[in-house]
Design a protein around this nucleic acid. Structure first.
Length: 652
RNA sequence: GGCUUCGUAGCUCAAUUGGUUAGAGCGACCGGCUCAUAACCGGUAGGUUCGGGGUUCAAGUCCCUGCGAAGCCA
């Protein structure tokens, strides 16, 4: 199935810092690019920055720097995204580059030659914030629908005969049912075009930071003509070598906010210029953060650099693509991220690698054995899981269903963990059944190899690292080497190594959600309530993490007396305490203070108990609360209460 | 205001052209194993499929209506 594959992200507007949305699009594009490279396709992955426009010009002026300097400064973090998110982009175009501007000019001339550009007068309300004109009827309270300020502008501008392309676009949509994904978005586009298109004003005279209109002093080419053209200017334009190989693009990945520009304007420009249209435009969804809409004013934007640093870029990549279906909105939370890391990456996958290579190491000194004796009843389910996962994975990648692709891969991880259980290599080793043990270990190594290949596009460091440990040759890393079972070589020496994905500790504050207080009203409502009344109030300048008194009041802190203490039966670091909190029954509480206190020293101490913490089973003992303490290890000290306060007394 | 989509187990989501006892993951509970990263495997958990009405031999799956949410357009 090798051919050519060209994937793009939007060029990111440099008036903003990179956030989770930018990272998301780029990561998705990266996974596609890596997948297609592994499949042997000639692949090109383009990202870039949009650096023109009135907003940039004004922001630069406000800072007293040149637009160029401003653009340079703000483009830099976007370029760092490549290293931080482990992107494999082949190019990173900037609209301020000469190679781009030349192609924009060429595009203009082509459209002009077709007779689609004419000079006219535009009068209307212009919003700098939206970079768009609004009709009188759209103005709400003297402002743009977005709330941005507008000003009345009358200017001579060039127009593009967009109206002429309505029928052609509809015809094209009809014959290309996969042109826009998801389908619901395609429907929106169709409806928009069906309503009739107005000609589009495609030049500006109100600013100069852009590509000049050829032979028309004072006119600058409309930002979207400029911006969209990046997809071909990066290929050298219509006459470029790369253009011949890679155009039309296989897929433009975009956020749903810029769908119309990509699905209506861009195709119309291309038609006018006599160029082929991209195969597909895929609009993905938005991320909310901890249930709330992401916004600068709320200060809850997710910084991808921060996430990569704290949890690893791969874990972040995995979470974003696994958590929701591409095309739907999703919610980002650290709680969810940690669940994915610990559950999927550490427990399921990482541990599978660790236990498998551990046994190979122990029983075969790390040498991947030749096939031994198969047992259909035991091997069958795993081989079937492999075949099903393989087919599901290919199907899912074909439709950009990354979450399904990962689910398919994890179904094989699950089957392999079960296989270890059922085949019980440790028993085979004890019994000396070498032929069977060989087969089982080979099977596990082959599974790991397949997983390594499949996961490499998603986990571009840990995937190859696993293959390194398996001593896999380049041929054994190609996607095609996983098309049929058993291509993995015997006789190679594998290295066990450290756990691929260590479990991450949940921040103490994160623990609360485990109690799961029946999540009351749904997010959107909360968001609105929180927003409407709060909006006028500037977010108070309180330190991050500040809580309201009400939040504190939720904690039931009580004085308690320790009436018994003993070592926890199944955990070295814990003590099992019995405390009197002034209630009918004494409580059992597990505390991680074994290193600091001997049980006998504790009886009779008066301490502080968090009494309304959800009970939790800790290594087999149900702990009904938590004692306040400070310090770590042997330096831990319980918070004690001097004197003789009665157990049950409220601490406030 | 018009149009579109959606509302399924505590949470996130599945359910071929309407068709047998509505599924999975996470969480919870119980049990098993010991190779492994307090990991892994198994089992259980009974959700009026938002409410109401209708079509049909049969509806989560079609129609009407009410409520709620989201999106596009004006």
């Amino acid at each position: 199935m090798s051919g050519s594959f060209y994937v793009t992200t939007p060029i990111y507007y440099v008036n903003d810092k990179p956030h989770i949305g930018h990272a998301y699009t780029s990561i998705a594009a990266d996974v596609l690019a890596r997948w297609h490279r592994a499949a042997g396709d000639a692949t090109w992955f383009l990202t870039g920055t949009d650096e023109h426009g009135l907003k940039i010009e004004q922001a630069a002026r406000a800072k007293g720097v040149s637009p160029r300097t401003h653009a340079d400064t703000f483009a830099e973090p976007f370029r760092r995204l490549t290293a931080a998110m482990l992107l494999s982009n082949d190019d990173n175009i900037r609209t301020t580059e000469a190679r781009h501007q030349a192609v924009v000019e060429a595009m203009w001339r082509r459209m002009e030659a077709t007779g689609d550009i004419y000079l006219g007068t535009y009068a209307g309300w212009y919003s700098v914030g939206d970079e768009a004109y609004f009709d009188e009827s759209e103005i709400v309270d003297g402002k743009a629908p977005s709330g941005h300020a507008v000003e009345w502008v009358e200017e001579q501008t060039y127009f593009f005969k967009l109206s002429k392309y309505g029928p052609k676009l509809l015809e094209y949509f009809e014959s290309h049912p996969d042109f826009v994904k998801p389908n619901s978005r395609f429907n929106e586009v169709k409806r928009f075009v069906e309503q009739g298109l107005n000609d589009l004003s495609v030049s500006r005279t109100t600013f100069s930071w852009g590509v000049p209109v050829p032979d028309a002093d004072g006119h600058v080419i409309y930002v979207w003509v400029d911006a969209l053209t990046n997809y071909i200017s990066a290929l050298g334009g219509p006459d470029g070598e790369a253009f011949k190989t890679f155009w039309p693009a296989s897929v433009h990945l975009i956020g749903k906010d810029i769908l119309r520009f990509h699905a209506v304007y861009w195709p119309a420009f291309l038609m006018s210029a006599g160029l082929p249209l991209p195969d597909q435009i895929f609009a993905h969804g938005w991320w909310t953060v901890e249930g709330q809409k992401m916004s600068k004013s709320l200060g809850n934007t997710v910084d991808p650099f921060d996430m990569a640093e704290r949890y690893g870029a791969e874990a972040f990549r995995y979470f974003l693509l696994r958590e929701v279906s591409f095309g739907s909105d999703g919610d980002f939370s650290e709680h969810g991220l940690i669940n994915r890391i610990n559950g999927d990456l550490a427990n399921d996958f990482g541990n599978l690698v660790n236990r498998s290579l551990g046994m190979l190491d122990r029983y075969r000194q790390g040498v991947i054995p030749a096939r031994g004796r198969a047992e259909d009843a035991e091997d069958g389910p795993l081989l079937q899981a492999y075949a099903e996962a393989r087919d599901a994975l290919h199907a899912a990648m074909g439709e950009l269903a990354f979450n399904k692709a990962l689910a398919a891969i994890w179904s094989l991880v699950g089957a392999a963990n079960k296989y270890v259980d059922v085949s019980a290599p440790w028993t085979l080793a004890k019994q000396g059944d070498a032929a069977r043990l060989d087969e089982v270990l080979y099977t596990l190594c082959e599974t790991l190899r397949v997983l390594g290949v499949w996961l490499s596009p998603f986990l571009p460091v840990k995937g190859p690292e696993l293959l390194d440990r398996l001593d896999a040759s380049p041929a054994l890393r190609a996607l095609s080497s996983t098309d049929t079972w058993g291509q993995g070589a015997s006789g190679l020496t594998a290295r066990k190594g450290d756990p691929l994905f260590p479990r991450v500790e949940r921040p103490a504050a994160e623990d609360a959600p485990a109690a799961k207080p029946a999540k009351a009203p749904k997010q959107p409502k909360q968001a609105k309530q929180a927003k409407a009344p709060k909006a006028p109030k500037a977010p108070a300048a309180l330190p991050e993490g500040t809580i309201a008194y009400d939040d504190f009041a939720k904690l039931q802190l009580k004085v308690a007396r320790i009436i018994a203490a003993e070592a926890h039966p199944d955990a070295d670091r814990l003590l099992k305490l019995t405390v009197d909190a002034g209630e009918a029954e004494p409580r059992t509480v597990c505390a991680g203070i074994a290193a600091a206190y001997a049980p006998a020293d504790l009886v009779g101490q008066t301490v502080v108990l968090l009494a309304n913490l959800a009970p939790r089973k800790i290594r087999g003992v149900v702990s009904q609360g938590m004692l306040l303490a400070a310090g770590e290890g042997a330096d831990t000290r319980l918070a004690t209460v001097p004197g003789e306060l009665a157990p049950g007394t409220q601490v406030s």
